[in-house]
Design a protein around this nucleic acid. Structure first.
Length: 425
RNA sequence: AGAGGAGUGGCAGAGUGGUCGAAUGCACCGGUCUUGAAAACCGGCGUACCGAGAGGUACCGGGGGUUCGAAUCCCUCCUCCUCUGCCA
């Protein structure tokens, strides 16, 4: 959530930033917020004064009763009702203003970093580099949704029967591949000093609000109405919320966490050819890294996370490229996001397998996540996260790129995790 | 899930309607003493909002209520503990 004080101090920067995202009537929205905040201050002040007045009277009554002067006490009591009524009016008014202010602030996404270009759609994401050879496949190569059938790795029909579309069963070597990839990704993280966390995959409303999935993406999460809990769309939610309502010391940093969870997304409104097979699922596995940093260091941390993710993809011998998302494609809470995509030769498509983002203090503000500086000031921390990595799409690319007429080769780093290095017919 | 008990500052723990933002101890910070350290002693020590400041206001698990006045009484939700039941 944006800070009103920052909006006031850097009005132009906020106007520009929101315009980059294609927001309309930006000045008007921001002015309204500043006005509401001023109104809030005024009403708060009046309310404080009213409370002060009645607090004085109450104290007097207390003293008088103790002194045995009942009559005088009753007299003062009769004077309190006007202040009480006024107090009630003012606090209703204040509540209304605060709600309005909060609602307006909730509507506003994070301000993009200066490096982020405006853009009109994902077409305008900036391609920063591409690495690795595109696979030279034999003529009869197939997309993974055929390969998984041929080799009996993933069963979508069974998923339909037991749950519904987008909830596949992984079987035999398919299941082993999922488990192996998860373990490989976790081991990589541990080697890079991330602390492994196994979080709950159901979270409460406060957690969803704090990392910004709520209210923005309400319709994208599965909601259990009888307990008012949400199935997580990413481990980011429970991992980042560990630090909700926290005051850290500067020597608590760096804070590096890694967690594997299944992720649940309703994907309402998704359609088209790119949803086939493992490309887009309602339930999928993902290993996520999260870091909490000071405001000074967060861009160094972001670079570190990018290098980290790149290293894993590289080790899997997959061709990949990195993009910087344009303002229009940037997630609601992110200030900057780098996407990693791997090339999947069977469907001849680039698949997004990781998003690495810096949220600066946007989430921290909602999380009430601060740290104390050496000088003793309290500052909002910065939060960052990245996929490391999304499992099914990596699986799709491995299957497609390594297929031969005799079977599918497995990347060498996975051999110890799989117990096989080749999937033959 | 049922019955009972409990949630107070970084921690421990007092406070059951009035000058309580809250005793006391520990921890922490500064100082005195000391060659140095410890001990002892003195002082400081929660958060947020408003204000240039003086100061004001709010906060005793969350929300609501009673009252001139609530940490204290009532309602509700959450969490923890004990017993009973159930179950990976």
């Amino acid at each position: 959530m944006l800070l009103v004080r920052d909006i006031e101090e850097n009005f132009e920067k906020f106007v520009e930033g929101l315009k980059k995202r294609g927001f309309l009537e930006v000045e008007k929205r921001l002015m309204e917020i500043i006005e509401l905040d001023n109104e809030r201050k005024e009403v708060q002040k009046a309310l404080d004064e009213t409370f002060n007045y009645s607090n004085q009277l109450s104290k007097k009554i207390g003293v008088l009763i103790k002194a045995g002067d009942r009559e005088e006490a009753e007299k003062i009591k009769s004077e309190t009702s006007a202040a009480k009524d006024l107090g009630k009016d003012l606090s209703n008014k204040l509540q209304g203003i605060e709600r309005a202010l909060r609602d307006r602030l909730y509507e506003l996404p994070n301000i993009p970093n200066v490096k982020v270009v405006a853009g009109r759609s994902e077409e305008d994401n900036e391609l920063l580099f591409q690495k690795g050879e595109l696979p030279q496949l034999e003529l009869d190569n197939k997309p993974h949704w055929e390969l998984i059938k041929d080799y009996g790795l993933v069963d979508f029909k069974l998923g339909n029967k037991i749950t519904g579309a987008g909830f596949p069963f992984y079987k035999a070597r398919g299941a082993r591949l999922i488990r192996g990839l998860i373990n490989y990704f976790l081991d990589k993280g541990i080697a890079a000093d991330y602390q492994e966390v196994q979080p709950p995959i159901l979270v409460n409303e406060s957690s969803g609000l704090a990392t910004g999935q709520l209210p923005d993406k309400e319709g994208q999460m599965y909601h259990l109405s009888d307990t008012n809990l949400y199935l997580i769309p990413t481990a980011e939610v429970p991992l980042t919320n560990i630090y909700r309502d926290t005051l850290l010391a500067e020597n608590d940093f760096p804070i590096k966490m890694i967690g594997y969870t299944p992720c649940f997304r309703r994907e309402a409104g998704s359609w088209g050819a790119d949803v086939r097979g493992l490309n887009r699922l309602h339930q999928f596995d993902k290993v996520e890294v999260v870091q909490i940093s000071t405001s000074e260091n967060s861009y160094d941390v972001l670079e570190e996370m990018k290098r980290y993710v790149e290293g894993i993809i590289d080790s899997l011998e997959l061709p990949y490229r990195m993009l910087r998302l344009c303002g229009k494609d940037l997630g609601f809470t992110a200030a900057i996001t780098y996407d990693f995509e791997v090339y999947s030769g069977g469907q001849k498509k680039w698949l997004e397998v990781s998003s690495v983002s810096n949220f600066e203090n946007y989430q921290a503000n909602r999380l009430k996540l601060r740290y104390k500086t050496q000088k003793g000031d309290r500052k909002l921390a910065h939060t960052l996260n990245g996929s490391a990595l999304a499992v099914p799409r990596i699986l799709a690319a491995i299957l497609e790129n390594n297929q031969t007429s005799k079977g599918i080769k497995m990347p060498s780093v996975l051999h110890p995790y799989l117990g096989f290095d080749f999937i033959e017919k």
